[in-house]
């Protein structure tokens, strides 16, 4: 039995992507059980899904702590240590990005690494950051057990009609444009026995809240979410056309646009989610939304 873990952002279709892969493996005569993990179910926040691949029907449905396959749907997940946690050396990584060093620098040892510039393809095919079908296509390239026909059949049979054309195009392009890197792994790397044979609870006991009563000192329990990593586009200011009216700061939903010492209003990119309200409301169109990948290159 091989284990699979998928990482991405909410709104990228991780759950649908996992289900499509599951149906594709069924078409190929294998079984893949997929379990999505719903945390804060928001567009842009981190989403994880798990899968177990076997020749027989899969009964276990706990989380995967030691995946053999890792599918990363978004470039923002590449730099997070949590993405690679428990990855078995010698496994396969399918990642959305262009630079293999970005993955290898995180200390993982895959035998096969498949990179595909999913965000660029997604913008060309669908006009947004929906990378799920592209990554499924790239996964086909990485895993010889799954022929491309099985994936295309799964898309045709299970996805709504209005998404099928772009989905098939995306999957095909993901399969064709993926770059495969292979590495030699020295030494024996064996997986630990599966969690259910070790009598380890898959669902750990939840942490006790710091305050039993709903009343407490709020100052000590304030939770901040790293929303800066959610964005796909970021606002860039053209200073020549800015009239420093501050309308962007008024309407920013996160209220992260502040007046700087030079009088210009700039967004705090640590928290900006890239919604684009500031650029849309700017009367002089001094703000433009620029793709994050432009900055990743630089």
């Amino acid at each position: 039995m091989k284990e699979l873990r998928m990482h991405g952002k909410g709104g990228q279709g991780i759950v649908v992507g996992g289900e499509t892969l599951s149906n594709a493996f069924l078409n190929a005569g294998k079984f893949l059980a997929v379990m999505p993990s719903y945390g804060v179910e928001r567009r842009g926040s981190d989403v994880t899904a798990f899968g177990r691949l076997s020749d027989e029907p899969v009964r276990e449905n706990c989380m995967c702590y030691e995946p053999d396959y890792l599918v990363i749907f978004d470039p923002s997940q590449l730099k997070k240590p949590a993405t690679y946690k428990g990855f078995v050396p010698g496994g396969v990584i399918v990642a959305c990005g262009t630079d293999p060093e970005e993955v290898l620098s995180m200390g993982v040892k895959p035998s096969k690494l498949v990179m595909v510039d999913g965000i660029r393809i997604a913008y060309e095919v669908t006009g947004n950051n929906l990378t799920n079908m592209i990554m499924c296509g790239a996964f086909c390239r990485a895993v010889p057990e799954l022929p491309m026909e099985a994936l295309l059949k799964a898309i045709e049979e299970n996805l709504p009609k209005n998404f099928q054309k772009t989905s098939i195009l995306g999957a095909q392009r993901g399969h064709d444009e993926a770059v495969v890197y292979t590495y030699e792994i020295h030494g024996e790397h064996s997986k630990k026995a599966p969690a259910w044979t070790r009598h380890v609870l898959a669902c750990r006991e939840p942490e006790k809240p710091r305050y039993e009563a709903p009343w407490g000192n709020g100052a000590e329990k304030i939770v901040t979410v790293d929303t800066g990593t959610w964005k796909v586009v970021r606002p860039v200011l053209t200073e020549e056309s800015c009239i420093r009216c501050g309308i962007c700061a008024t309407y920013c939903p996160i209220q992260c646009i502040r007046k700087g010492e030079d009088g210009y209003f700039r967004a705090d990119l640590d928290y900006c989610k890239g919604c684009g309200v500031c650029a849309y409301e700017c009367p002089k169109k001094a703000l433009t939304m620029v793709q994050e990948s432009e900055f990743r290159k630089a």
Partner: peptide
């Protein structure tokens, strides 16, 4: 208030 709230981009309620 926390500068990072887990709400969707463009949420009217957050504003």
């Amino acid at each position: 208030m926390s500068p990072g709230l887990p709400m969707c981009a463009g949420c009217g309620m957050e504003l």
